[in-house]
Simulated scan of single mutants.
Amino acid sequence: MTIRPADQIIHKAAWLYYAHGLTQDEVARALDISRASVAMYLRRARDTGIVTISTSTQLFAEDVLARRLEDALRLDAVWVVPDSAHSSDPTADVPIVAANVFMGLVERGSRIGVAWGRTVYTIADQMAHADLQGVTVVQLCGNLGAPYSYRPDECTMEIARRLNAKGLNLYAPLVLSTENLAAALRAEPVIREQLDGIAGCDLALFSIGTVDADSHVVNCGAVDARGLAELRAAGAAGVVAGRIIDARGEALDCGYNRRLIAADIDTLRAIPRRLVVVREDNKLEPLEAALAGGLCTHLVLGTRMARRLLEHAEKARAPAH
């Protein structure tokens, strides 16, 4: 369904009223229209069935910047979310839009691979409840031993709960102490079957991690700051589902990755639809690495990041003088 220009104001009013909980007076001030117009637009939204947030997300897919990014990066779909004027966090709307984009991609019988982190868990928390038949949610990487918010198992099971789906946790640590131990555990029939099952996913949801001192792999204890600095010096550019990637989007040849229990990069890349969601401004380099490696088909991001990404993409394509 294409949103006609005349309908955009209706979708915007519905988005602010239903998604953000603004009053009609606040919506009127935000859109610079009268309160009577807001009431009329909300009534029309209810009458035409466009009050659902999922249809309003089309506003962000039809943005000119989103279309330019799709062309420049050869992605299936991009949603560019304007900075929020109704929250102390300018990127607060990104998980809201992403949750509804994700719900729109889920189909009956879907097998979904889910990574972890604050962004993924926030998306799960924003998701509506659904009851689709035959949906399975699969954990893409091993778990963390110490208590940690946004753990892989928590993200997987919360999304499964929202979808009334079957959740499959990966019952192994994310990182082992030695490469031999990790190889032996990956060879165990139960773990091998779980890892092999990731290849059957038709949809994946993940964000991209940084390789700086505030990286989630440092905060969760998977690697210490010194070890990550060494990985950075060796070419690390980002983190995908717990795995370190280089600037080409390939798994970095390093001991950390060899001690990992997680989907490999080729398996992730083979999943037909790969929804990547990025909120933080410091994730341009890891996002570009993931895009270079073909790890993304669908992308949700904020306006500032979208502009920076497009600028870099157009510079890279410009002929050298």
Rank of each mutant, 00 (worst) to 15 (best):
N219H: 12
N219Y: 07
N219E: 13
C220F: 07
G221R: 04
V223R: 08
V223T: 13
A225Y: 03
A225D: 13
R226W: 11
R226F: 11
R226A: 15
R226T: 15
G227N: 05
G227E: 13
A229E: 15
L231K: 08
L231E: 06
L231V: 05
R232C: 11
A233P: 06
A233K: 14
A234Q: 15
A234M: 14
A234K: 14
A234Y: 09
G235T: 09
G235N: 10
A236D: 02
A237V: 04
A237Q: 05
A237L: 04
A237S: 14
G238E: 04
G238A: 00
V239K: 03
V239E: 14
V240F: 02
V240D: 04
V240P: 08
V240Q: 08
A241T: 05
G242F: 02
G242D: 01
G242Q: 02
R243S: 08
R243H: 02
R243D: 00
I245V: 14
I245E: 06
I245Y: 00
D246E: 02
A247W: 02
R248M: 11
R248W: 09
R248L: 12
G249F: 03
G249E: 03
E250M: 12
E250I: 05
E250Y: 06
L252W: 10
L252M: 09
L252A: 06
D253K: 11
D253Y: 09
C254I: 01
C254P: 02
C254E: 08
G255W: 04
Y256Q: 04
N257E: 07
N257T: 09
N257A: 08
R258C: 03
R258H: 13
R258N: 11
R259N: 06
R259S: 12
L260G: 10
L260T: 12
I261Q: 09
I261R: 04
A263E: 04
A263M: 12
D264N: 15
I265R: 10
I265S: 07
D266I: 03
D266Y: 05
T267S: 10
L268W: 05
R269K: 11
R269C: 04
A270H: 11
I271D: 01
I271P: 06
P272V: 01
P272H: 01
P272Q: 00
R273Q: 10
R274I: 01
R274Q: 07
R274S: 01
L275C: 01
V276T: 15
V277I: 02
V278S: 05
R279Q: 15
E280Y: 11
E280D: 15
D281F: 12
D281Q: 14
N282L: 13
N282Y: 11
N282M: 10
N282E: 13
K283C: 10
K283F: 03
L284A: 13
P286I: 04
P286D: 09
E288K: 13
E288Q: 15
A289W: 09
A289Q: 03
A289N: 09
A289R: 07
A290E: 01
L291T: 04
A292D: 06
A292S: 14
G293W: 00
G294V: 00
G294L: 00
G294H: 06
